[in-house]
Simulated assay, not measured.
Amino acid sequence: MARWKELPGELDPVVVEFVGQLRRLKDGSGLSLTRLAARTGYSASSWERYLSGRLLPPAAAVEALAAATVGGTGADLDTARLLALHEAAADAWQRDRPSGRTPDHEPPPVAVAPAAVRRPVTRLRLYLTAGAAFAAGAVIAGVAVGSEMPTGSARTAVVAHPVTYACTYVRKAGAWYAGNSATSNDALEVDMSGPEVAELQCLLQRAGISPGGVDGNFGPLTESAVITAQKRYHLDVDGRVGPHTWAALRG
């Protein structure tokens, strides 16, 4: 069993309980971070951030962890309870960081609008269910009753001045460019953003590997696409972009 470091003291108790549950699932599975990354599609470095409380995982990563570690006839119910606890933790995380980016790094599409009309009683029921499963009921219920929780759409990253990126492919000196950046060696990884990331996403699309859209944000979908590209081109698979990955995608 891993000897975990103490979580950051500024974390909300709901987040602490949630991360503790992730750690218990990981320890109970006996999987190393490398094997966990292979089973879930999220890199070992991402799981290190999630399990250390430095970054809250997206719901898709939580579902992947549950699929890799939760077994038995009650697996579906256990996964639902874990996701309910994740939802409560995400609300607490966003409340503590109202102007910061959230772990999903998704653009604000119209598709998220239905989440804004869900009734608070539904969320309260989810919180209480999660509390019964993970012995965090008192904390979760207190947060849910004490203040109106932000809806799922409130956790979407808010960009004060949205930037629109396009992919305009040009081949120069045997290399492909998409019109956002000419870099061939900038190091990119999860949580970074900007035109270099948009260039990366365009090149991934040109290679037939979807990064989940071209928005200039290096989120989990882009990381997964990078991993796929690194496997295809027989590179070191770490979900990070360096000179070798750039060369393969521009070639």
Rank of each mutant, 00 (worst) to 15 (best):
A144I: 09
V145K: 02
V145T: 12
G146F: 09
G146R: 11
S147P: 00
S147K: 02
E148P: 05
E148M: 10
E148I: 15
M149I: 13
P150R: 10
T151H: 08
T151W: 13
T151E: 15
T151P: 07
G152V: 11
G152M: 08
S153M: 09
A154E: 13
R155P: 02
R155H: 04
T156E: 15
A157Q: 06
A157L: 07
A157G: 00
V158H: 03
V158R: 04
V158I: 07
V159L: 03
A160N: 04
H161L: 02
H161W: 10
P162G: 10
P162C: 13
P162V: 15
V163D: 00
V163H: 01
T164P: 00
T164G: 02
Y165E: 14
Y165W: 15
Y165T: 14
A166W: 08
A166G: 01
A166D: 11
C167Q: 07
T168E: 09
T168N: 04
Y169C: 02
Y169H: 03
Y169R: 06
Y169S: 04
V170Q: 11
R171V: 12
K172G: 00
A173K: 09
A173I: 09
A173E: 14
G174S: 13
A175M: 06
A175R: 14
W176E: 02
W176I: 03
Y177A: 00
G179F: 01
G179I: 07
N180Y: 12
S181C: 04
A182C: 01
T183G: 02
S184Q: 15
N185S: 02
A187G: 05
E189L: 05
E189A: 04
E189C: 04
V190D: 04
V190A: 03
D191K: 07
D191L: 13
M192K: 12
M192S: 09
M192P: 04
M192V: 13
S193T: 12
S193H: 14
G194P: 14
G194I: 14
P195R: 03
P195T: 05
P195D: 06
P195Q: 04
E196T: 09
A198F: 14
E199Q: 10
E199D: 14
E199W: 09
L200Y: 03
L200F: 01
L200E: 06
Q201F: 01
Q201I: 08
Q201V: 08
C202G: 06
C202S: 08
C202W: 13
C202V: 14
L204S: 02
L204D: 10
Q205T: 13
R206Y: 05
A207E: 15
I209F: 02
I209H: 01
S210Y: 12
P211C: 03
G212H: 15
G213T: 15
G213P: 13
G213L: 12
V214P: 05
